[in-house]
Structures are given as C-alpha cells and as structure tokens.
Simulated assay, not measured.
Amino acid sequence: MKTLKQTVIAAAFLTAGLLSAQDKAMNNMIKVGATAGLAVPADNVSAAVGVDVAYQNLITPGFGLGIASGYTHYFGKDNEGYSNNDVGVVPVAALFRIYPKQTGFYFGADLGYGFLVGDKNVASNSAAERPDGGFYLKPELGYHNQNWNFFVQYQKVFTGSGSDLPSQDYNVGSIGAGFSYNIPLGN
C-alpha cells in the first residue's frame, strides 16, 4: 500500500510538471518578499512581520525545489502577569512549490529548522529561558505570475514544552499573508 501511495504521488508531480506551461527561460530564480500575520495561538506573542529570501530551481515546469531563509519578528505581549519578550525566527529550510499552470494558483511549503533569536528569557519578569529553535514549517497557498507571488501562509516553529511558563505555552507561530518578487537567474 505504501508503494502504491508513493507511485501515485510521484505520478501526480510528474503530470503536474508535464502539463504545466511555466516559462522554461525562468528555471532559476531568487524570491524576495515580505509577510505579516497574527500569532496563533497568541499566548506570548501577538503579531509578526518578516522578510523572506529564497532560491528556487524549476525541476520541471510545474515543480520547484530550493532553499529558503529570512527573518520574522514576533511582538511579545503581556499575558497572565508575564511581560513576554519579542522573539525573532531565522529559518534554514528546503522549499518545494507546485505550479499547475503558468499563471494561477500554486501551493507548497518550507520545511527545516527555525533558529529563535532575541532576548535569552521568555519574559522580562521570568527566569524561564527561550529555546534556541525547533522544527520549522511554513505551508503556503497563493497566486503567481512570472514576476510576483501573493500568498497566505501558516508559519510555526515547534519548540517543545521546555520554555512554557505556568498558565501559558511558549508559542512561536502565525497565520498571515505576503508577497514575493521573482528575480530570474536564467536557465
């Protein structure tokens, strides 16, 4: 059964690539963009803004692989008597994108490790230390043309429960929207 699933998934990727009409002259690109979102759940942070940079290679006209990084700043908030500090996320991730058509909707994700940067403590009035990072996940669904991508995303760094404070979980995640500009590097 597992082999059948893998075969069906591989065939779907291949079919999407063969049926797509992506411009072959734009196989390699740098994507530079910005994002904004609201924290979910919002125990210790309230909102997020960020910048993204990624390299993508179109393996087939409808399927891209690459690497992604950037910086997202999460704004701390007061909760349950704690003055939570701001925290930043610097991801180092692999990306994949599926483009069914030359222009239109696409989907994909970034998967990797998210480094947490900023104040050493979770809150200014607590000795609980913030973790160094964790598994990073950023699925996105969007609309694209040759130059631009507009998308909605969910971003999360899974840190475990080592930095939880009494009555609140330590969370670094958001749901939001963003855009990126594609800088072609040629074939």
Rank of each mutant, 00 (worst) to 15 (best):
E80L: 15
G104I: 10
G88F: 09
V51K: 13
H73F: 04
N125G: 02
Y55G: 02
P61E: 10
K77I: 01
D119Q: 08
A127S: 14
N28P: 07
S83A: 09
V122M: 09
L38E: 06
T15E: 14
D86Q: 03
V87M: 07
L111Q: 03
G50V: 06
F75R: 15
I67T: 12
V53L: 02
A68F: 06
V32H: 02
G37D: 03
T35N: 03
I30D: 02
A93S: 15
D86W: 02
G104D: 11
S69R: 07
K24G: 01
F107E: 15
V49C: 02
F96S: 08
A11W: 09
K101S: 11
A10W: 03
P100G: 05
L18E: 05
H73K: 04
G112D: 10
L65I: 01
S126A: 07
Q22C: 06
T103V: 09
T60L: 08
F107C: 15
T35Y: 00
F13K: 08
G50I: 04
L116S: 12
A34Q: 03
V49E: 01
A123L: 09
K24I: 05
V45C: 03
S124A: 12
G62Y: 01
Q102I: 07
P61A: 10
N125A: 02
T7R: 14
G118R: 08
G17M: 07
G118S: 12
F96I: 13
S126M: 02
S46N: 00
Y113E: 06
F96Y: 12
Y113A: 04
K24A: 08
V122K: 09
I67L: 15
A21L: 09
P41T: 00
D52N: 11
F75N: 11
E80V: 15
A48S: 08
K101V: 10
G88W: 07
A36S: 07
G114Y: 13
A42F: 00
V49Q: 03
Q6E: 08
F107T: 15
A10K: 04
S124M: 11
V45K: 05
F63A: 12
N125S: 04
L65N: 00
P100H: 05
A12N: 04
V90W: 03
D110H: 09
Q56W: 10
V45N: 06
A21I: 05
T7M: 11
F115W: 15
A34I: 12
N85G: 14
G112C: 05
K101R: 08
T15K: 12
D86N: 15
M29H: 07
M29E: 08
V90I: 10
E80K: 14
A25T: 15
A93P: 15
N27P: 15
G112Q: 07
P61L: 07
N125V: 04
I30Q: 02
Y113D: 02
D110C: 09
L116I: 05
A16C: 06
Q102A: 14
S20K: 00
I9N: 13
A47W: 06
L65Y: 00
P41M: 00
T60S: 14
G33D: 01
N44L: 01
V40M: 00
G112K: 05
Q6P: 10
L14Y: 14
A68R: 14
D43G: 00
D43E: 02
G33P: 00
L38S: 10
G66A: 06
P100Q: 06
I98S: 04
T103I: 10
G33K: 01
G104L: 12
M29G: 06
V49F: 03
P100T: 04
T35D: 03
V8Q: 14
L38R: 08
Q22E: 10
F96L: 11
Y113G: 05
